[in-house]
């Protein structure tokens, strides 16, 4: 089965992100493969191991996003493609979805597209399902388990109250939840292969599309108001004494 995984490069989850002079800055924290997309890569590789075929990893981003693609290659993906175009600088989720849709069509013969749950920069969690809709493919979102049997996908989807088991024929799009299992580490051989890989770059012209319209704008990004927490340390000679004081304080806050 030929699979595409869509990944984004984002600042590390441990980065201290602030707005400085109107711009988002993460200091010298590294840019990494979006942690949720690691699960998508893992799930795609598991499916490929079971069903054969290739896993192509795609990212829309700047030149630096090649590093995220290399992480995915090192994990075991067969090939990577960067989609980069200055016209996509302020692209919203739907514009990215249109680009991904065009790219998946250009890759050709793709039967399943994998996405992460959300990108940890914009925290949108919508691009996967929007791409699926544009492709005309069903979306199996937040898959906690993926099986492939007799040409059919069988997926357990996570919802607030439980899991729904759904089945569908290919092609289909999936987003992957953490329940799938921990993503593998890049292997030594994988890292060597990835470091030598030539990653082709496609621009919008190569995809044969105009710059898609973005309708959601972010006029302002700002630091959240500093929360003045005055920490009160509760001390006492015994756990009982501490508990008495702490419970009294909590009850005073009227949160129970």
């Amino acid at each position: 089965m030929n699979i595409v995984v869509c990944v984004k490069q984002v600042p590390d989850s441990a980065a201290k992100v602030v707005v400085e002079g109107g711009r988002v800055s993460w200091g010298d924290a590294p840019l990494v493969l979006n942690p949720w997309d690691e699960y998508a890569v893992e799930a795609a590789l598991l499916l490929q191991e079971a069903a054969g075929g290739d896993v192509t990893v795609l990212s829309v981003g700047g030149e630096s996003a090649k590093e995220a693609l290399k992480t995915a290659l090192a994990m075991g993906c067969s090939q990577a493609i960067l989609i980069s175009d200055p016209a996509l600088d302020a692209a919203d989720s739907q514009a990215i979805a249109r680009v991904l849709c065009a790219a998946i069509k250009k890759v050709g013969g793709v039967e399943a597209a994998f996405f992460g749950r959300q990108a940890i920069d914009g925290d949108m969690g919508v691009t996967g399902v929007q791409t699926a809709h544009l492709l005309g493919w069903p979306m199996l979102g937040l898959a906690a388990r993926v099986e492939f049997e007799n040409g059919k996908l069988r997926v357990e989807r996570s919802f607030e109250e439980g899991r729904q088991i759904v089945e569908c024929q290919l092609p289909a799009a999936l987003s992957i939840s953490k329940d799938i299992g921990e993503p593998r580490y890049p292997s030594f051989m994988g890292i060597r292969k990835a470091s030598r890989a030539e990653i082709p770059t496609w621009d919008l012209a190569a995809l044969g599309i105009e710059a898609p319209v973005s309708v959601v704008r972010w006029p302002e990004v700002f630091n959240p108001p500093v929360r003045e927490v005055k920490t009160e340390m509760i001390e006492g000679g015994s756990p009982q004494e501490i508990a008495e004081k702490l419970v009294a304080k909590i009850l005073e806050e009227k949160v129970l």
Partner: peptide
């Protein structure tokens, strides 16, 4: 207004459509 970067920042967003 929506939290972004896991709530480390807030963004004001508008929809033109």
């Amino acid at each position: 207004t929506r939290p972004v970067y896991a709530g480390k920042l807030l963004a004001r967003v508008v929809c033109e459509a």
